[in-house]
Every structure is written in C-alpha cells, then in structure tokens.
C-alpha cells in the first residue's frame, strides 16, 4: 500500500474564505492514520492501531493545518458544523458513509456552505 494518498479538496459557498480564500486544494494525506484522528505530522501509527485515512480524518486535518479562522466556523464535535454539506466525488457524503468513507487516491471532496441569500 502506498504510504500517502493524493486527494483534491474544494470549498464552496463562502467556505473558501476560511481557507486563505483558496477554493481548490491538492492534499497528500497519510494512507493510514491514528484511530483518534491525531493529525500531527510526526505521529506514529502502531501496528493494528490505525485506520485508512477517511473523511473524519480529513476534517480534522483541514481544521488543524489549513483553517485560518475560528475552528467552530468549520468543525463541530468531530464533524462539519451544521449548514455544511460534504460531497464525495459529487455525491452527498451520507450515501458514502459520511466520516467513515475511506479516501482513495484521486478522490475529490467538496465542502459546501449552504447559502441563504436571495
């Protein structure tokens, strides 16, 4: 198994403002991550103590490494805050197992903040 996976992350609906005003990000994530989603770079995952990098880990990773505003504008209790919809390759993440969806090389994950203006 490769030690890292490459994914594309996109922010929409104003969420990009929380991430350096950049809509599109290419990320390399460890293929295997700690069960507790610890995103520190030097963390060692002991044999049998890891899981494949999943969307829950990605959310923690984005919060810890890319988010430039207060955490509660993006994350809440280990998932995205209410009002954010997550897409896995253009499919509502609920159809893909939400946070437990195991990321695959080349996946595109989109975070959309719902709009309310009219």
């Amino acid at each position: 198994m490769e030690s890292t996976i490459s994914i594309k992350v996109e922010f929409s609906g104003g969420l990009e403002l929380l991430f350096d005003n950049k809509r599109s990000h290419e990320l390399a994530l460890p293929a295997v991550v700690p069960l507790n989603n610890d995103t520190k770079k030097d963390v060692v995952v002991a044999e049998g103590q890891g899981k494949p990098a999943d969307v829950a880990y990605l959310i923690a990773y984005l919060r810890d490494h890319l988010l430039q505003e207060r955490a509660e504008l993006f994350e809440e209790g280990g998932t995205v805050r209410p009002g954010i919809l997550v897409l896995v390759n253009d499919t509502d993440w609920e159809l893909e197992g939400e946070g437990e969806y195991a990321l695959r090389d080349g996946d595109e994950i989109v975070f959309i903040s719902t709009l309310h203006g009219g």
Binding site: R81, G83, S113, T114, H116, G117, G118
Partner: peptide
C-alpha cells in the same frame, strides 16, 4: 432531510453584508 440542524446565525451572512453579483441571482 439534508439540513436537519440549522446553521448558527453568526455563520449566516446576508447579501447586504457579503454582497452579490446581479447576474448570479
């Protein structure tokens, strides 16, 4: 079904605060 919980009002902006391009509406 899609948004069972409403967003915190502090995360919701209006067109007056955030702006909007006419063609987009």
């Amino acid at each position: 079904c899609i948004f069972p919980t409403p967003p915190n009002p502090t995360t919701v902006g209006s067109c007056e605060e955030l702006g909007v391009l006419g063609g987009v509406t």
